[in-house]
Computed example of a mutant assay.
Amino acid sequence: MSTLDRAGEAGPTTGVPPVDPDEAVTAPARAPQPPNRRPGLGGRIFVAVALVVTTIAFVYPFVWLVSASLKPRSDVFDNRLIPETLTFDNYIEVWNAAPMAAWLLNTAFVTIMATLTVTISSALVAWGFARYQFRGRNFLFGLVLASMMIPGAATMIPTYLIWDSLGMVGTLTPLWAGNVFGTAFYIFLLRQFFLGLPTELFDAAEMDGAGHWKVFWHVALPLTKPALVVVALFEFQAAWTDLMRGLIYLRDREDFTVPRGLKSMLDQFGFGGEWHWELVVTASVITTVPMILVFFLGQKQIIQGVASTGTKG
């Protein structure tokens, strides 16, 4: 007896209906996957050449700046990357020609305060928009985003009048205290990151008795470290290189930040008739190196934070 006949006889007794081979349902065939095409030799060479050219375009100005700082005044603009006459006297003279130590300390204070205040305040606002439901939330968040379209020149005079009425003109406070209220771009960036986090973690923490502040400080912030580092580095760079507010609010030379001090050196030694360009480029190197070090230390967090932001919401 064939297998099909035995199955037909067993059908009435076991309750399993016989199977007709013609009606058997077969599993759908998997669609063929496209081959993983890697770029050929010519494509890889083109990408490598493009990367090298782009790298040279970005690195060359700084290499030229370092080279010029190691030359005497007569050779600053000779365009040799390897100085014909190597000298380190410029790095000694620049400290005597300008209060570089005071400028660096002022800039470090402003930068640290601006970075801390804007990171914390922006995270608080972003957490509120991401975690809590309240009437008008989307409308208020839209107003925050709309504030990014207002040019800084439109609020420059009203902001100056506010700080002048508070007696803060001529101090370092206006250069960082405005960050206490957060920044629209950073609020948007952190909100998108908060929305990408699993809400079950926050619900579990609240069920365990954690309050709103404890959930934010001990659960949300540690999970948002990459985005926080991105915000901190962006603001660090913005505050370190901010010239406009230094020109508006600072009066005494000892209170200058590095960008404002470089502007005064350029006016004095570059266009003031003394033509000490070697001091100007040397001071530029001294003030550029800290930013390069900061970005080298934080490049991993920058890539991770940008890659994981904006995936939800």
Rank of each mutant, 00 (worst) to 15 (best):
L4G: 07
G11D: 08
P12I: 06
P18W: 04
P18T: 08
D20Q: 02
V25P: 01
T26I: 11
A29H: 10
A29C: 04
P34A: 08
G40W: 09
V47M: 07
A48H: 14
V52F: 10
F58T: 12
Y60D: 03
F62V: 13
L65R: 07
A68Q: 14
L70F: 08
R73Q: 11
R73E: 09
D75V: 00
R80H: 13
I82R: 12
I82W: 07
P83N: 08
E84D: 05
E84R: 06
F88M: 11
D89I: 04
D89P: 04
Y91D: 02
E93R: 09
N96H: 09
N96V: 04
A97P: 09
M100D: 00
A102N: 09
A102I: 02
A108P: 00
A114N: 00
T115D: 06
V118S: 03
S121D: 08
S122I: 08
L124R: 10
G128R: 00
G128F: 07
R131W: 06
F139Q: 11
M148W: 09
I150G: 00
M156P: 06
I157N: 09
T159K: 12
T159C: 01
Y160I: 02
G167H: 13
V169D: 06
V169S: 07
G170K: 15
T173K: 03
A177K: 04
V180N: 00
G182R: 02
Y186S: 09
F188G: 03
Q192I: 13
F193K: 07
F194K: 12
F194M: 15
L197N: 12
L197H: 15
L197C: 13
D203N: 11
D203F: 05
A204F: 14
A205C: 08
G211I: 14
K214I: 13
V215R: 14
F216A: 13
A220F: 01
A220D: 08
L221G: 08
L223V: 15
T224A: 15
T224K: 10
A227Q: 09
V229P: 10
V231N: 03
V231D: 04
A232P: 06
A232D: 14
E235C: 12
F236V: 00
D242C: 10
R245E: 05
R245K: 09
R251E: 03
D252F: 04
D255P: 01
F256P: 01
T257I: 02
R260W: 01
K263C: 01
K263N: 12
K263F: 13
S264H: 00
G270K: 05
V281N: 10
T282L: 10
A283F: 10
I286H: 06
L293Q: 12
K300I: 08
G305M: 11
V306R: 03
T309A: 15
K312R: 15
